[in-house]
Amino acid sequence: MAKRITIDMHTHPAFSETICLTPEQEKFAQDMYGLYKTEVSSDEMQLIYMDVAGIDKAALLPLDLTSTAGGCLASNEDVLTLVNKHPDRFIGFASIDPHDPAALEKLEQAFAEYKLSGLKLHPSKQRFYPTEDCMEDIYAMCEKYNKPITFHAGMSVEPDTLSKYAKPENFEEVAYYHRNLRFCLAHFGWPWTQETCMLLLKYQNVYADTALLYFDSAPEFYEQVFTIDMGKKWIDRSFRHQIMFGSDDPRLEMIRMKRAIENMDMRQETIDLIMGGNALEFLGMEG
């Protein structure tokens, strides 16, 4: 039997020493994420952390904040650098600013030239609605290259974010009109998890990740969200092919987040799908 691959689909690379080269860059990352005590860390440390957590690969999610903050939380070129250093451990996503006139050009470069694996967008931080006119060409580009999108969805604890942009129901038209576009509602769209469930049920091109922990410990919060706020068996019976493990590293910790998912009362096949199998499908990679 083949070994299960474990993929963390939600990590932020902006504090990597390879790309965060100045105190100003570190301060920018701290201020933009609201991670006020997080510091630059070595790639060696990140890989050790992944090893101890039992994570084979991590998706690196950058964020282009050109129009709202005048900078990027890791550029597409930064992500490419990290992926090229550790191609067996990192899965690189691109980001573009939807309001940047050069957004499409940058996105095509990221997919065609850099071969990045998907697109990360954050409606609340980047201040756009998923159904804005400027988004149509971006979705078409993702469909053209068969690349998925991970949207921040639900509340964001980052500064300068308004939740209204990222309510899960805002994404229904994207799912409806772009059936070939796979996209993930990160953080399960919390606190609007019922809306996320509605979309997961109606649209098989919609995924969600597990990068959510805002109260209590990871096991306690998952129990609340996934077995009380939602039906206890909904994931195991209905959404087992649409949920992906994500930790939200470095805001949350891979080891404890992963352990909490693995200890949930679900079939082992469901756990395996969440921990890696669904990510391979989402990314359009061979299993």
């Binding site: 609201g34 006020y36 005590k37 997080t38 980052e158 805002y214 470095p250 949350l252």
Partner: peptide, 10 residues
């Protein structure tokens, strides 16, 4: 959630 960290106390 620890506001001074912007992260959970885990």
């Amino acid at each position: 959630f620890l506001h001074s960290y912007g992260a959970m106390a885990g």
